[in-house]
Amino acid sequence: MPIDVRCEGAVAVITIDRPEARNSLDPEHNAALGRAVAEFEADDGLRVAVLTGAGDEVFSAGADLKKLIPAYRDAVRAGEEPAWNFGGFTATPREKPMIAAINGHALAGGLEMALACDIRLASPNATLGLAETKWAIIPGAGGTVRLPRAVPLGLAMEMILTGDPIDAAEAHRVGLVNRIVPLPELRAEAVALAQRIAGRGPLAVRAARASVLEGLGTDHDAAMAGEFRRFLEVMRTDDAVEGATAFAEKRAPVYKGR
């Protein structure tokens, strides 16, 4: 299968399965990954996704420079302006959290996909970079937008303008990845983290995620107002009643997403 999807309870593990091409995305894999993420978003039984790559060397090398990029470039040079929604999700609004389990090199569009995830874990052998200027193009799937929001501006500029990657240790030091996990344990730890999040109130998780992302793009007062609006919305849910009731009764809550 071009994109492997396996469900572990309320967690979807989405694997880019093209190791012979460094898990890069050609048109087929790009479309398939988009479908996988869309199906995860639409499935009420799934609450969190883990995105990773097949093998133990590469998360994803980004767009296939022999197939996807030439086809897109030719369309643009012919006067078209086709959408560039890399991976089928980097330009699509999402409601549910995704975790990137970076099992090796995350380069160009590979890093852009990881940046579009909400949490990033990396193996020690990972490198992270936006290599596009080496090929006389620029990041177009959120790289110039999300990377400066994730790391200091000077470092983001250096990475984007030179195209040079940083290693996992540096990525962890600057906060680009949450933590470094030994490669044999990476997938399991990412799934365990996803399951912890999936065990929280699903409407609260989505509302909190939306509040954080919305707040990044607005001033303080508007961000506070947006948070309060979502706070009230969540307070009105049955899950909010269940959470407090379960705490008082000293039992695990049973959330139903309503």
Rank of each mutant, 00 (worst) to 15 (best):
residue 55 G to H: 02
residue 108 A to N: 13
residue 18 R to G: 12
residue 244 A to G: 01
residue 132 E to V: 00
residue 107 L to H: 05
residue 95 E to P: 03
residue 155 L to Y: 07
residue 134 K to I: 00
residue 139 P to V: 05
residue 43 D to N: 12
residue 87 G to S: 13
residue 234 V to D: 10
residue 81 E to D: 14
residue 81 E to R: 13
residue 9 G to Q: 09
residue 227 E to T: 12
residue 14 I to K: 07
residue 171 A to W: 06
residue 62 G to Y: 03
residue 258 R to F: 01
residue 207 A to V: 11
residue 13 V to Y: 02
residue 200 R to D: 13
residue 53 G to A: 11
residue 49 A to Q: 03
residue 14 I to M: 09
residue 2 P to Y: 01
residue 62 G to C: 02
residue 15 T to W: 09
residue 36 A to W: 01
residue 61 A to H: 05
residue 31 A to C: 00
residue 8 E to Q: 13
residue 49 A to P: 03
residue 148 P to S: 12
residue 220 H to R: 07
residue 120 R to G: 09
residue 157 M to A: 14
residue 198 A to H: 03
residue 258 R to T: 12
residue 107 L to A: 07
residue 105 H to Y: 03
residue 11 V to L: 09
residue 61 A to Y: 06
residue 43 D to Y: 00
residue 178 N to C: 10
residue 23 N to V: 07
residue 246 A to I: 02
residue 179 R to G: 09
residue 254 V to R: 09
residue 211 S to Q: 08
residue 233 E to L: 13
residue 68 L to S: 02
residue 140 G to A: 15
residue 197 I to C: 05
residue 53 G to H: 06
residue 99 I to K: 11
residue 91 A to R: 15
residue 169 A to G: 04
residue 216 L to R: 15
residue 141 A to H: 08
residue 255 Y to G: 05
residue 83 A to N: 08
residue 20 E to H: 01
